[in-house]
Write a protein that binds this DNA or RNA. Structure first.
Length: 927
RNA sequence: GCGGGUGUGGCGUAAUUGGUAGCCGCGCUAGACUUAGGAUCUAGUGCCGAAAGGCGUAGGAGUUCGAGUCUCCUCACCCGCACCA
């Protein structure tokens, strides 16, 4: 029979599904392995060829591990809450649950066609009540815990309450929104409402008034990672700063642990670096500058306490609480004008005008606590409210922003650090600030002559001795805004009594998402949930917000371990067995979102003793994006005539996107083109060599550019096995690359060649029972070794090459011996499961190939005596050989040649050249 | 501006991790079988040269017996952060 992939793939896919062959039990004698691909958001557009890349890569690894004797957890599910379904609902009135359901169906059928070995018995959907029940449950736990900096973990809030009523804040070192100080008596004297407000300051999920990213077009707030360059990631709508009461997640409490945890993870350096940057730890000092009148002082943060002698002014952010208090009467009008102006600027305007200097003098002065000099206090929006204390000491000589400000407002510039080997300069001649990372100190009293590093340490000690400040570590990371004014998300299990939020009883979870008549905010501007009838609990109003998209994806990898458990979030036995994800595959766009929130969420659950591992994803691989390759035709302006690519320079033309499905190797199918669109029915063409050649460009894959390659079409034309192998063959997994269907024919040819190894000229199945020759063993075993090494390091493109080489070599020597072909089939089953399963059964096996043992490579076929690997890859035979250090070159050559002949590893070919170099290395070229 | 990464034939890529650069595939050229082929098979294919030979891993230097690989500088492109004190 010829290679009939359609029949083979259909047959085995339904067989596998029927037998639940990929179901992994929570108990097994085998070692466990957990392979996870990031679950998709089921969008209306369906899958394109980019999606399967990661799934196939994960699938190959899962199948490989199964063959290696592991109990493999390889689940899949859907990140089903999200904005697009809701936007669609607003436009059409269609319930988001319905569209989501439809899209999931489509996704599932597309995934099934690829022969992915998912354990569908464990499927989760974040929008199912049985799933989000536990998202809500986890939220309540966050609400009921605070972070203790001494224990370095989350602890129950009751403990904090006990401590407050016994000793006040005296012994407390906890993560909080604002540092508070009160005694036990003060605490006990407070009302329930006041106490609850104080506790909010400590809860890990807390309600607060905060400056948030408000997107008027989407009608919701967004997290920092959902905003890029002042516009929303989804939709690209402008985002403003707005003061609103919102739920937040105190992720900052975990900043240091999130940083430290990266060390032992097997993640790429780039993604670790992105997370480190996002957390943004900087070490320095907080210093208190008293006001001139001594009434109070204010705190600043600096990483360079050594430059404190160079401070010539202070700057407050326009939002700073001190402004009203200190502004002098003469300056009042001007300050108010500036503050109002600064507040009304959009985030985008502010970012676009970074270079423009603006600011205003408050009229007030502070005192430098080290030098006791009088320093003017200014206001400027180049100081950010969100970082540090929203106030800085300005050292214009050594900071470019301070320098620009000082020049603009004519403030003094004092050089305090001089680069080694240089002399102090006249700063009035400078056009920019001077780098001060290295050098010696001047004009700095006790620091004079010291190197920067020593000076920083000395000044830190000095500051501490004078009690004017202390060492401090600052993080750029902000708490995550956790509420959205949307419908299609998890409702908060929170109700309000007397304006105070209380969690819903755990036994009453899930708090079901109510039905509403319209998916829009109310006329009074309340979120859509305010439209729900009887949206109350115990007679009290429930929260109108829903949780953000990342809420449901925080711990989905944990629910896969026990997806049907409805008595606990995490089944301890299942968790003890599966531990955490061994290999996680997904796109790098989640570097600062999902991958950070998940780690924090997991650490919190770890603190509660609910999970055994502190980190969720041991090894992470980011598959590259697959870009689209668009094709163009060129229409001569004002006509309906199209000119081929290389002739277009003679005409005035408009390039027009053309559907890549009617273009083959950049050659246009003219008939199909005429039918494609009525406008082109009577089109005329200027051809080159009787062909119409299209131009191309690499762009994002998108419908409007007609460059979307649908995997279903390719499966239909070439089969899933070919598509799987081709996607892996395209290049290194982590690299982004344009989709190009050109090369798929080569892989398709390879599949036929492989199939033919098992068949005679008449296409009947025929393998020989003969004992293979040493050469045949070598071909097999070098392939086993190579492929195994390549899979382990996820270098699938080179593994596919190794298969091709192997099949070429076996075809050349017409090897059809079962002893060679059978192990090769098992070896390839991870890549091309359908064809290998078929052959496996043709070879006489009744059980599935999926659990056949993985073939081991035998060293004896690769190593002979002192030669390590006298096997050629890349058309070369090279190896190492132990030789006495004092052996003369001529002697070495003789020894090697003699040995080579004796071993017969040259397979009848003659040695062409022996290159002998010192250090025991020998290269031998054979022809 | 700061941080991370990449640069190899016409194209996607490979290179025992310091050891003949270009494996495998696409494309291209020639041939065979074919009524025909956009099917299949065979051979060739880094560049220059008729050949001998020479030149070649973005460019320049360095370390080494030996560099695509290590070090330094320059250039180009990609990604992340960005008034972060």
């Amino acid at each position: 029979m010829e290679y009939n992939f359609r029949e083979i793939e259909k047959k085995w896919q339904s067989q596998w599904e029927q037998d639940h062959i990929y179901h992994a039990g929570n108990k097994s004698d085998k070692p466990k392995y957990y392979v996870l691909s990031m679950f998709p958001y089921p969008s209306g557009a369906g899958l394109h060829v980019g999606h399967p890349l990661g799934y196939i890569a994960g699938d190959i690894y899962a199948r490989y591990k199964r063959l290696k004797g592991y109990n493999v957890l390889h689940p899949m599910g859907y990140d089903a809450y999200g904005l697009p379904a809701e936007q669609y609902a607003i436009q059409t009135g269609q319930h988001p649950a319905v569209t989501t359901q439809t899209n999931i169906k489509r996704y599932r059928s597309q995934l099934d066609k690829l022969g992915l070995s998912f354990d569908w018995d464990r499927e989760v959907r974040t929008c199912e009540p049985s799933y989000y029940k536990w998202t809500q449950w986890a939220f309540i736990q966050l609400f009921n815990h605070y972070y203790c900096n001494k224990a370095k973990k989350a602890l129950p809030i009751e403990g904090l309450v006990k401590e407050f009523s016994a000793h006040g804040t005296e012994n407390i070192d906890a993560a909080c929104s604002e540092p508070l100080q009160f005694s036990a008596e003060e605490w006990n004297g407070k009302s329930e409402k006041e106490q609850q407000q104080i506790l909010m300051n400590y809860r890990l999920a807390y309600l607060s008034y905060a400056m948030v990213n408000w997107c008027p077009k989407l009608g919701t707030v967004l997290a920092n990672d959902e905003v890029i360059n002042g516009v929303s990631v989804r939709g690209g709508y402008p985002v403003e700063r707005k003061l609103m009461q919102q739920w937040s997640l105190r992720i900052t409490a975990y900043a240091q642990r999130l940083l430290d945890g990266l060390e032992d993870l097997c993640w790429s350096d780039s993604i670790k670096e992105v997370q480190r940057n996002w957390i943004g730890r900087s070490q320095g000092a907080s210093v208190f500058f008293p006001l001139e009148d001594g009434s109070r002082s204010f705190e600043i943060f600096t990483t360079r306490p050594d430059t404190i002698y160079g401070v010539s002014f202070m700057v407050l952010c326009p939002e700073h609480e001190l402004i009203n208090e200190i502004t002098t009467a003469e300056q009042k009008e001007e300050v108010e004008k500036y503050v109002t102006w600064a507040k009304n600027r959009s985030e985008r305007e502010r970012q676009a005008e970074v270079k423009t200097v603006s600011g205003v003098f408050t009229g007030a002065y502070a005192v430098n606590p080290i030098t006791n000099t009088r320093i003017p206090i200014w206001i400027s929006d180049y100081v950010l409210a969100g970082y540090g204390t929203g106030a800085i000491m300005a050292v214009p000589a050594h900071d470019s922003r301070d320098f620009a400000f000082a020049r603009h407002f004519n403030l003094p510039i004092v050089q305090v650090v001089v680069p080694n080997g240089e002399q102090p300069e006249d700063t009035s001649l400078w056009t920019q600030s001077k780098d001060s990372k290295e050098g010696y100190c001047i004009h700095s009293d006790i620091l004079n002559g010291l190197q920067v590093k020593e000076a920083i340490e000395k000044m830190l000690r000095h500051i501490e001795a004078l009690h004017v400040g202390s060492r401090k570590i600052n993080y750029r990371l902000r708490d995550a805004i956790f509420s959205r004014q949307r419908y299609w998300g998890e409702p908060f299990p929170i109700y309000y009594k007397d304006g105070i939020p209380y969690p819903v009883e755990e036994s009453d979870l899930p708090l079901l998402l109510p039905e509403i008549d319209k998916y829009l905010p109310t006329e009074t501007g309340e979120p859509p949930l305010a439209r729900a009838k009887n949206w109350t609990y115990k007679g009290y109003p429930l929260d109108y917000n829903t949780m953000p998209g990342f809420a449901g994806s925080n711990a989905y990898y944990l629910r896969y371990m026990n997806p049907h458990c409805d008595t606990a979030y995490i089944d301890p036995q299942a968790n003890a067995y599966w531990q955490n994800v061994d290999l996680y595959i997904g796109g790098s766009e989640h570097a600062t979102g999902h991958l950070l929130y998940s780690r924090m969420w997991n650490k919190f659950l770890f603190d509660l003793g609910l999970v055994v591992k502190d980190e969720p994803f041991q090894k992470l691989v980011n598959q590259g994006m697959i870009q689209g390759r668009s094709n163009f035709v060129y229409r001569i302006k004002g006509t309906n005539t199209f000119v081929s690519l290389h002739l277009k320079q003679n005409y005035q033309v408009d390039p027009i996107h053309v559907d890549i499905n009617i273009v083959d190797n950049d050659v246009l199918d003219i008939d199909a083109f005429k039918k494609w669109h009525p406008d082109f029915a009577n089109a005329e063409f200027i051809l080159e060599n009787d062909k119409y050649i299209c131009g191309y460009e690499i762009e994002k894959m998108s419908k409007s550019m007609y460059n979307v390659q649908n995997p279903d079409d390719l499966v239909e034309k070439y089969g899933a096995d070919t598509l799987r192998m081709y996607e892996m063959f395209l290049g290194p997994l982590e690299q982004s690359k344009p989709w190009d269907t050109k090369g798929i024919e080569g892989v398709f040819r390879f599949m036929h060649k492989f199939w033919k190894l098992f068949h005679n000229a008449q296409y009947s199945f025929a393998v020989s029972e003969e004992e293979p020759t040493s050469q045949e063993w070598k071909i097999l075993h070098k392939t086993i070794k190579k492929v195994q090494e390549d899979i382990e390091r996820l270098s699938y493109n080179t593994a596919v090459s190794a298969f091709m080489i192997c099949v070429n070599e076996l075809t050349d020597i017409k090897c059809n011996k079962k002893a060679v072909l059978e192990p090769l089939t098992i070896l390839m089953a991870s890549f091309a499961p359908h064809i290998c399963e078929e052959i496996w059964h043709l070879l006489g096996h009744d059980d599935s190939i999926n659990y056949a043992g993985f073939p081991e490579w035998e060293e004896k076929y690769l190593v002979e005596n002192s030669f390590n690997y006298p096997i050629s890859f890349n058309g070369k035979t090279r190896f190492m050989m132990e030789l006495p250090a004092d052996m003369a070159p001529a002697e070495i050559e003789k020894t090697v040649l003699a040995s080579a002949e004796a071993q017969k590893w040259t397979d009848g070919k003659t040695v062409k050249k022996v290159i002998v170099v010192p250090k025991k290395i020998v290269n031998i070229v054979v022809v």
